[in-house]
């Protein structure tokens, strides 16, 4: 017997630049949804970390953007799209410990240069598209 595939659940979040208080909302919501789906704890952890890092990256570095999360019965797809300033050297940004965050941000405990590497480590599929002066797009897929 095959069950018909259901369309995914879509969660949408608008991320405001500098809104530290709002950071973690998407991660917290998606975490709850995965518990309700009955996902394994390791998957929940990876999705939570990936989403949280994406949120914080946008809050710290971007001019604002959108995170859309598609939850289906096989995987979680996290789409992040912001409006700049973009990443001039993606390879450098993907290195652990590399960060362009200001001292002020670092004093708050962020900007350790682990955001993008963490996001990549947590996903089964990771794709980033960016360039100086344009927005950044990140797509992550985590299989269930």
């Amino acid at each position: 017997m095959t069950t018909e595939k259901i369309r995914p659940l879509v969660l949408e979040y608008t991320i405001v630049s500098g809104d530290f208080a709002g950071g973690g909302k998407a991660a917290s919501d998606v975490k709850r949804c995965l518990s309700q789906l009955g996902c394994q704890s390791e998957v929940i952890r990876r999705v939570a970390v990936a989403t949280y890092e994406a949120e914080m990256n946008m809050i710290i570095h971007s001019f604002g953007g959108k995170i859309t999360i598609y939850i289906s019965s096989d995987n979680i797809r996290i789409l992040c799209e912001d409006t700049g300033p973009g990443i001039p050297d993606i390879e450098l940004a993907m290195q652990e410990g590399y960060s362009t965050a200001s001292d002020k941000i670092r004093e708050m405990g962020f900007g350790a240069g682990m955001g993008l590497p963490n996001m990549k480590n947590c996903s089964d599929f990771f794709c980033i598209d960016s360039g100086e002066g344009q927005g950044t797009k990140v797509e992550m897929v985590i299989n269930l």
Binding site: T3, I6, Q36, G38
Partner: peptide, 11 residues
């Protein structure tokens, strides 16, 4: 918290 044992149904 799981809504259903069947993941498709839970979704």
């Amino acid at each position: 918290l799981k809504l259903d044992d069947d993941r498709e149904k839970a979704l």
